[in-house]
Design a protein around this nucleic acid. Structure first.
Lengths: 222, 222
DNA sequence: TCTCTGATTGACAGTCCAGTCAATGGCGTG
DNA sequence: CACGCCATTGACTGGACTGTCAATCAGAGA
């Protein structure tokens, strides 16, 4: 008889959810909970040592339930990557939508969005990193992954083209956009992989300085 | 005298070694052969699916022999990363040593060294990538990995500091060095992970354009 | 309260893999 | 030519992990 009656449910270990969780949850809520546990596991153990048992333990569930909701480990990981990509895309698109219409404002919003504190967290960066390392040899992951990049890159290049038209910069927009993107992505990797890393604020500062060098008429240093 | 005289040994499957391989090899030669097979396996299958059996098959050896030479899988992978880091370091240090003494020449040599055709190969980039993804959760790999970065970064920053002193650029050398390094590293990742990637020559061009924007008095575009 | 639906569990099976080890065989040396 | 050393092999083991499945349980509606 598991049937513990009052159900203290004190230490639920992972989700800092104040509401006492019901024993059964809706499909969507449970899937989200498991995906969050997967992100945490990827961050803590890396891709190679991420097991269903560990994900289930992290979520406080049986490992059978993980497979009940995601069928296979492959699908769980693909859906996790998909969720990461979706929240990333939603974040920068929302930032662009609520920013001013000028190219300079758009680019500024895009840079800030990439360092949003709720997405640019150690767990999420580490999970991205884990997929990054594995994606090159797994077509399944490249799909979700490359698509995200494509839309972002295209928008970034448009903005850079506008800035070039306005400011008369000599370099081609394609390269300006690429250098800016690589600097932003690169600081993420630094945050993860450097022995003595700087923090997210310093990363953001690096990106802004990069913008100020590439487009000196539009952005001032600091 | 390795004494292998007739020894047909026709299809040796992997190493394009023209010399007929003897049945037994010196410790060092065998280790190198296995490390090369490991790099190929990491590139083809990723970190998570790299098994001793697959490495052995790639090298044309029994998997017992791999463990005879490296004791454990962990040590094999750590030594492989160490070998990659060493050849990378040797490469850029040799390039700096044989380049001219001015800061501009040094930086130019450093950029070219990073795209040396014998090191900037798909297999090696993919192997780096595989370690990249796993290193964040594995202290063993961070050691070899972070040390390499440290020396390179320090030298890059010195060179940038000289260029700033010469050219009177406004940005701090620390950020200039970082942006340049991130652009170089980033193009490597692009070569691996993009859906529709450009080639190594285009990557090198991107790095040179970056240098020409950061240090316009020292580098001309194209 | 009873019943039905669907979430949840945990034991189990099959597979794959790292690491062990006894036996083999090639090569240099005496 | 014989011996001994050491590289090499491949079968074997123990463990870990993914995926299956029958039984259980919680909640909603009648």
């Amino acid at each position: 008889m598991t049937a513990a009656s009052p159900k203290p449910s004190t230490s639920s270990a992972e989700a800092p959810d104040p509401a006492p969780r019901p024993r059964t949850m809706s499909r969507e809520a449970r899937r989200e909970q498991i995906i969050e546990a997967t992100i945490r596991t990827l961050a803590a153990r890396g891709f190679a040592r991420t097991t269903l048992t560990e994900v289930a333990r992290e979520a406080g569930l049986s490992h059978g339930l993980v497979l009940f909701h995601f069928e296979t480990k492959e699908k769980l990981l693909a859906d996790t990557l998909g969720a990461l990509a979706e929240e990333y895309r939603d974040n920068w698109q929302a930032a662009l939508a609520s920013a001013g219409p000028t190219a300079a404002e758009q680019l500024s919003a895009l840079i800030d969005a990439d360092f949003a504190p709720n997405l640019c967290t150690p767990d999420r960066l580490a999970a991205w990193c884990a997929f990054w390392g594995e994606a090159q040899s797994r077509p399944i992951y490249q799909e979700n992954y490359g698509d995200k990049d494509a839309a972002y890159n295209a928008r970034m290049e448009e903005i850079c083209a506008e800035l070039v038209a306005e400011g008369g910069y000599t370099a081609a927009p394609k390269y300006l956009a690429r250098i800016l993107r690589l600097t932003i992505e690169g600081t993420w990797l630094d945050l993860m992989s450097m022995k003595d890393p700087y923090d997210a604020a310093e990363a953001q500062r690096t990106a802004r300085i990069c913008a100020s060098i590439l487009f000196p008429k539009h952005f001032k240093a600091e």
